[in-house]
Design a protein around this nucleic acid. Structure first.
Lengths: 299, 299
DNA sequence: TCATATCTCTGACCGTAGTCAGCGATTCGT
DNA sequence: ACGAATCGCTGACTACGGTCAGAGATATGA
């Protein structure tokens, strides 16, 4: 993919950031975390929780080759930092458990990571520290926005249910009179499955952080419901991504437009709908909790 | 050094940033720049300018072992990307010059770095891109602030002269009536040397980015002059760092306080002096360009 | 019970990044 | 003119991070 529409100055600043930040943090990691143990061994030690962890779990989490991990664990065992024993449930599986020294070493690693972070803040004034932490947060969130995926999912799955629960809880908190899903239209999530509809989940690092559903009505307007985004990832454009994916789904099902309704207390959602090209229309249904209705034509 | 005064939440956010950013950028580097050539070879190729560059210069710039660099250059030569020949001036020295293919490869590397940067911005809305670029700039500057050094220097050195010229030029630009160093007190920089005074230069990556001088008057107040910070590094706390270093120098020379004078048009300097504990006092000299005089007791 | 799958471990590899000592050619300082 | 320094190159070596092909032990499903 090419991104020729982006301006030179922005590209240059991003490149300068990449260079400066990786160099700075890399140098500090050498200084604070380097030497003693190899990076690979440290990462593994970090995964060995006090209550023990199966080797296969470490392998999956760090995406390591089984042979490589085996050797890393051996070297940690030789250093007296972890103990390895066959798992009680399945004796093919081996379980790693930190020794006393291993626990101490983990505390030490943690302390050094803290020191590394502190060394970045130390030369700054309190006001600058605040600005740096703020800018880091913003940069991190927007960089991670690129890792968000939006994919179809079963509306009855655990993740989907967790999203919907969080959505209902938020509405209950924000609507002046609370919220009862049974009073809302389409309480049955089975409708959000082909052929009558589709349910999408947004994920970041595998964690469900947002959802949305669309119902198809042939060439009549498709109908968007249950759009939710986790508070943790506000301002990362997740809502927009879900909305675009739902519209694309509607387009693929030959809908000429999409409709949705919402409530005045969801101000940021309404702003997003307007920014995305939705136009307010007269009420087209009797959704109990709605007071604004929108429609957007699909090319 | 320990930094126990820093709060848990800030430390955690810095650590999260370090983790997220290095992982994200590292993964993208593998994707966009990885494979084809090793990182070392790419870095070397990048240093081989079209007009040729001495091997020793590459070695100094990248801080590479001479044997290691020799091998990297050999592999680039084998690939037909650079040509090596004895330097005209000194036949011990070898000069590397890119071939046609090498130039093309550099353009390609550059293009891929651009694409990497663009891929970070691509999934964002225009508003978010602006915020990301802004946050990256702030984070980068404040991270680099930790790399600024402030050290004594000869006021007659090239770097010192460059700083003073930049300082005078800035005053000429900002003072309503311009600025002529000859009309100002202490035009002779020879005073800014032991035993009568000291001159300090602030540097970032070796480049002089700020300066300041202090004159000692026994147990009488020491006197600060010629404080300047490059526009490029405003808001990085360089002024504060220089000021603290000058005060420390005065303290070591048994001064009980420091004085300085300034001009109302240098608003950010005045704000910094006040924030640093300087108190406005009646005029104590007849500096032509001054309209505010300050003093600060040293413990 | 038996074939198949799963899990860990070992041995044999590879490329990258780097360090160190020493050599031959050249240049510099006196 | 000569000794010392400089420059680059080569050979020998190390550690890290990783891949791949099995082997052996164990578990699982038909």
């Amino acid at each position: 993919m090419t991104h020729e529409q982006l301006d030179r100055a922005s590209i240059d600043r991003v490149r300068a950031f990449n260079r400066a930040v990786t160099a700075r943090i890399g140098a500090l990691e050498d200084e604070y975390l380097g030497s003693a143990r190899s990076l690979g061994a440290s990462r593994v030690l970090w995964e060995v929780r006090d209550d023990g962890v199966d080797v296969r779990e470490i392998r999956e989490r760090l995406e390591l080759d089984s042979g490589y991990l085996s050797r890393l664990l051996r070297s940690l065992e030789r250093e007296g930092l972890v103990g390895l024993e066959a798992s009680a449930a399945d004796s093919r599986v081996r379980t790693a458990r930190p020794t006393e020294a291993g626990r101490a070493e983990r505390v030490e690693l943690d302390r050094r990571s803290d020191e590394l972070a502190a060394s970045l803040l130390a030369p700054l004034s309190p006001r600058q520290r605040e600005r740096l932490v703020e800018a880091m947060g913003t940069a991190m969130r927007l960089l991670e926005a690129g890792l968000v995926t939006v994919d179809p999912a079963d509306a009855a799955s655990d993740d989907a249910r967790a999203c919907l629960s969080a959505y209902y809880a938020e509405l209950a908190r924000r609507f002046p009179g609370g919220f009862d899903p049974a009073q809302s239209l389409h309480p049955d999530t089975r409708e959000f499955a082909e052929p009558s509809g589709r349910f999408l989940i947004a994920r970041l690092h595998g964690r469900a952080i947002g959802c949305g559903a669309v119902l198809f009505h042939g060439s009549e307007p498709a109908y968007i419901k249950r759009m939710w985004v986790d508070d943790d990832v506000r301002d990362m454009g997740v809502g927009r991504r879900i909305l675009e994916a739902l519209e694309q789904t509607a387009r693929e099902h030959r809908a000429a437009s999409v409709t949705l309704e919402t409530n005045a207390s969801l101000t940021e959602a309404i702003a997003m709908y307007r920014a995305a090209g939705y136009i307010e229309v007269p009420p087209f249904n009797d959704e109990f909790y709605a007071d604004h209705w929108f429609e957007k034509p699909l090319d």
